[in-house]
Amino acid sequence: MVQLNELREIGTRPTDWAKNLRLSAASLILVLWALVVFLPLAWMGICAFTPNENLLFTRPVIRFEAFSLDNLRSVFRRSNGLFDNWLFNSFYIALVVSIGSTFLSAMAGYSYAKMRFPGRQVIFWILLATLMVPYQAIVIPLFVVVNNMLRLADSHWAIILPQLAAPAGVFFCRQYMKTLPSDLEDAARIDGCSEFGIFCRVILPVSRPVLAATAIFTFLWSWESFFWPLVILRSEKRFVLQVGLAYLQDNSLLSPGYLMAGALAASIPVVLFFIVFQRQLTKGFSFGGLQG
């Protein structure tokens, strides 16, 4: 990575005070923006741990001594003890979708990127086009497909399968794999490797960044999906977390504390994922294919 700062000689010449000033101004903007971005989240955290009634007064009473887990306990209680069910359901569905989608997207992306077959462009464009149809229009037909045709309603497969069908991952993988030089596969082909072998041994290892990014994004997207699981699930114990929390949203104007506590609980995987996979994420975006 180019170190542009190497091109600057900071602090060694008289005119550098101007540079320092600009540097501090720049840092100030950066820090300010970071604050703007984080303060609301900090507020969410504070509200989550402040007893709900304290938030309902004309001036919400925030006292650190009063911090408690009451709101979270309320959320657990109101879920009739199903909260960990919901958490588990969300988690394993997102995991399955994430792994499955990465694998499917990698295969399909590689094919769209590198292989030639009649109709390749058309099919790919159709994939992209469906990204632009709002889901409100698709919900009822999808329900017809899932329930009337396949009889999968109220099951987790009804959530997993449609999510695996999403084309975003395919798009990313294709863009990335397009930038891989063909010499790699050609060499392997000359060595007598089968197509699938090329895929497994040559392409996949090189595509780690995009695979990681796809896996992470798909996980998070599945984790936060709400409307479709809401519509397709009936039994409370099969709910995913976002759907379960929707029940606590009723009358939310009277319970901001519970709401924030629930929101916090639902966001923890996001934060964890980010902390653990931060590098892969940023690397996953640093490939030229995305820009052209």
Binding site: M107, A108, S111, P141, V144, P162, A165
Partner: peptide
């Protein structure tokens, strides 16, 4: 290579969009 994803796509995304 595109078959696994495409078959799911056809059933769960393309078909509803068509409907």
């Amino acid at each position: 290579f595109i078959a696994p994803h495409l078959s799911l796509f056809l059933v769960f995304l393309f078909l509803p969009v068509l409907l």
